[in-house]
Design a protein around this nucleic acid. Structure first.
Length: 580
RNA sequence: GGGCCGUUAGCUCAGCUGGUAGAGCAGCAGACUCUUAAUCUGCGGGUCGAAGGUUCGAACCCUUCACGGCUCACCA
């Protein structure tokens, strides 16, 4: 069980997410967490596993399995599979259980079609029907097409805190690890046939065998199994060349089991206790169902605990996420915009059997705000009722890549961070230091390297989002002295233009007199209204005019704080063009 | 045709093994002589898809039905 260290005092200030103003530190309430039982879906499944599996073992090690076919770029929908398992694995470990977390790359599957997003389409065409582990890497960086897709994911998973034990099915098959399992399937040919036929529209042909073979002459799966000698000998014909050959299951690298038999065989081989599956598998007559029956009837083991997870859709980006279509949204794309913690939060906070959309539009801000609120609930900064506290806290814990820090880390509200990044032209360090709280804590040497890494990652995500997905209205660019002055006459009548210039002049005088650095944000706000009056401008017009001068648009961040953040020199350099 | 999931406020959804329905957004009222789905304060709003059943008590359990979505029956 993972306990939360509760600090006695809270020294890190909390940011007001919507203001440029200086923070007011708060004291953290002393909270007590009851870790007895959580209603989070990962914990419920962990309980279920512990109740129903390995009940006779002295010190059970629960085997949790996940896996997919790397037949194309691994997309975010596939990621749901692995993180769902990882969350249950964590839940089990938090309950003190020992767990083996395996991830099977089904890289001995057949290369069926060339995904549109792959380079070297013509080259890949030539390898259709080969096992994907023997297809060359179109990026020419790794040993195979399959490996190329695998490597990408294995690297990314580390970033989100997921490190399973990887199993490579091609290696396992070709090393003869599954020889016994294959033989067993052959021995139970008729039993398996009956199970599969139960749900088939067309019964399996009389000469069907529960095994498939790649041709050693062509490397393709276009073969016909002819006979099995009741021991280890399997005879097949290569359909293209017409040649026949007899293999020894113990040594051949060419044979494998079809999916519906392969799956239960591996459950038995690894002793799998838990493995979820997509909704396409969970249906009567679907592959989980037939695998369950084969598992019991042929391999003599009970099918693992399972649940069904739903699909993921994408919002604010367009396109689909199928690996065979051109547009693929992968974990890498999601990590461009969401930090690893927030990415985990998306999955940990949603029931697996609910479909949800990963947003790239304005929702991104809300997601970050939700995450930050969840964090404040966890640390007891935001008060909520006990139920909610328990639920949110557990989601927060499960969202962490590392164990949670002992005290609430300084938060950088996403929206404000975006504004600062825009003001600082994407310079992360400057944007982060523009938070007054950061400057204060940094001076006191209270920001850890870990905090900085997280902060910079968030800044990177915010910047990526601003560059690629943020609505145009949301984005602005501060004008520099080299930019030509905005022609106010294009926007206003002459009288107003004159007033605008007068206002700019007053502002310049204020700035040169050092007035702004003396005033706090509130006082500066009041002073701005005074200036509007002195210049004989409607406040609304006054603000528009200043935004035009500074960002070339009639709207922008709240002006007083905005000006302070920009700094006297920068504002002066812009206003000089108008205020003479 | 079979199966799975869903149906709770205008919208999106929470509601732990049954104990008087809850958030966010939207709406309405007020505040802020500016604002980036603006912020703050307050308010209203639901026969929990329908009908039966079990129970002292049902959004929750059981049965039937309606509607919606997905999925299987070819391959993985």
């Amino acid at each position: 069980m993972r306990f939360i260290e509760v600090p006695l005092t809270y020294t890190t200030p909390r940011l007001n997410p919507h203001s440029f103003s200086v923070y007011t530190p708060k004291t953290m309430e002393n909270t007590s967490k009851n870790p007895s039982h959580s209603s989070h879906w990962a914990d419920i499944n962990a309980d279920k596993i512990m109740r129903s599996r390995r009940t006779g073992d002295q010190e059970p090690t629960y085997v949790c399995a996940s896996g997919i076919t790397p037949s194309g770029t691994v997309h975010i929908g596939n990621f749901r599979e692995i993180i769902s398992v990882e969350l249950v694995v964590r839940a089990l470990r938090d309950k003190g259980a020992r767990v083996r977390f395996i991830y099977s790359w089904d890289d001995y599957d057949v290369f069926r079609k060339v995904p549109k997003n792959m380079p070297q389409q013509e080259m890949l065409e030539k390898y259709l029907r080969w096992p994907i582990t023997m297809v060359p890497d179109p990026f020419e960086k790794t040993t195979s097409y399959a490996r190329s897709n695998e490597v990408l994911v294995e690297k990314l998973l580390v970033k989100v805190g997921i490190s399973p034990e990887y199993l490579y099915q091609a290696d396992k098959y070709r090393a003869g690890d599954y020889a016994q399992g294959m033989r067993r399937a052959l021995e139970h040919r008729d039993t398996i046939r009956v199970i599969l036929d139960e749900f088939r529209t067309e019964p399996l042909p009389e000469d069907w065998w529960p095994i498939s073979v790649f041709s050693s002459f062509t490397n393709k799966d276009t073969t016909t199994v002819l006979d099995w000698d009741g021991q280890w000998g399997l005879t097949y014909r290569c359909d293209e060349t017409g040649k026949t050959e007899t293999l020894d299951l113990r040594t051949t690298p060419w044979a494998k089991l079809p999916w519906r038999i392969d799956w239960p065989m591996r459950w038995a081989y690894e002793g799998v206790d838990f493995e979820p599956a997509g909704k396409d598998h969970h249906s009567e007559g679907g592959s989980f169902d037939t695998a369950r029956k084969v598992s019991e009837a042929v391999y003599g083991v009970q099918a693992p605990v399972t649940f069904q997870y739903d699909f993921i859709s994408i919002k604010g980006r367009g396109g689909k996420i199928s690996s065979s279509s051109g547009e693929v949204v992968g974990l890498d794309d999601v990590l461009e915009v969401y930090t690893p913690e927030v990415t985990r939060y998306l999955f940990a906070g949603t029931r697996p059997n609910a479909e949800f959309a990963i947003s790239f539009d304005l929702d991104v801000i809300k997601i970050y705000e939700d995450y930050d609120r969840c964090e404040r609930v966890f640390y007891g900064i935001d008060q909520v009722n006990d139920k909610k506290k328990e639920k949110e806290s557990r989601i927060y814990e499960l969202s962490q890549v590392e164990t949670p820090a002992p005290t609430q880390p300084l938060q950088l509200p996403f929206r404000h961070l975006c504004n600062l990044l825009l003001i600082m032209n994407g310079e992360f360090q400057r944007a982060i230091r523009a938070f007054p709280e950061v400057a204060v804590l940094e001076a006191e040497d209270k920001l850890s390297p870990g905090w900085w890494a997280t902060a910079e990652n968030r800044a990177q995500c915010a910047w990526n989002w601003l560059q690629s997905f943020a609505p145009e209205d949301f984005v602005f660019q501060v004008r520099g002295p080299q930019d030509p002055a905005i022609a106010l006459a294009d926007y206003y009548e002459g009288i107003t233009v004159n007033s605008a210039h007068r206002a700019a002049k007053i502002l310049v005088q204020d700035l040169e007199g050092g007035n702004f650095s003396r005033l706090d944000e509130k006082a500066l706000g009041d002073r701005l209204y005074e200036i509007a009056r002195e210049a004989d401008l409607e406040p609304k017009v006054f603000f528009e005019v200043l935004y035009l001068m500074i960002v070339g648009k009639t709207r922008g961040p709240r002006l007083a704080g905005f000006l302070k953040t920009l700094g006297t020199d920068r504002v002066l350099s812009i206003l000089h063009a108008y205020g003479r």
